[in-house]
């Protein structure tokens, strides 16, 4: 099972998604803004980051860029979680360096599939 860092400012979303992931047997750590997310990711404890895009302090795109620019976090897979499937969000997320993206509301089986795919390819 994977160690997942969930960066999400909305408490309800954070609570809901983390509990569902944990129910599937994953370990979940949480950050509530972009800066915290970047700091936690640098610890190297996590297999994958689920990154909300509209975050306080620094937003998800900027946080992703920083992680992908730093050598020690370059290989850390990041899945962008965007709000309602706004056209262009996918491009923007991929441009920022995200490895994949998914849209909210989260369809759990689909998200799990993406996590599995990324971790399968990196491990």
């Amino acid at each position: 099972m994977a160690k997942i860092l969930l960066v999400e400012d909305n408490e309800m979303n954070r609570d809901m998604l983390s509990r569902r992931l944990m129910r599937k047997g994953h370990e979940v750590a949480m950050a509530t803004d972009g800066r915290e997310g970047v700091d936690m990711a640098r610890s190297g404890e996590y297999d994958i980051v689920l990154m909300d895009m509209s975050l306080p302090e620094i937003d998800g795109w900027e946080a992703t860029r920083r992680l992908k620019q730093a050598a020690e976090t370059q290989a850390l897979p990041i899945i962008a979680l965007t709000a309602h499937a706004m056209a262009g969000d996918r491009d923007k997320a991929l441009e920022a360096g995200c490895d994949d993206y998914d849209t909210k509301p989260i369809d759990l089986p689909r998200l799990l599939g993406k996590i599995e795919a990324l971790l399968g390819s990196t491990t």
């Binding site: 309800m12 979303n13 809901m16 509990r19 569902r20 129910r23 909210k104 509301p105 989260i106 759990l108």
Partner: peptide
């Protein structure tokens, strides 16, 4: 709020 309803009900 709807996202919460959907998410929590599913969970």
């Amino acid at each position: 709020p709807l996202n919460a309803i959907i998410g929590y009900s599913e969970m």
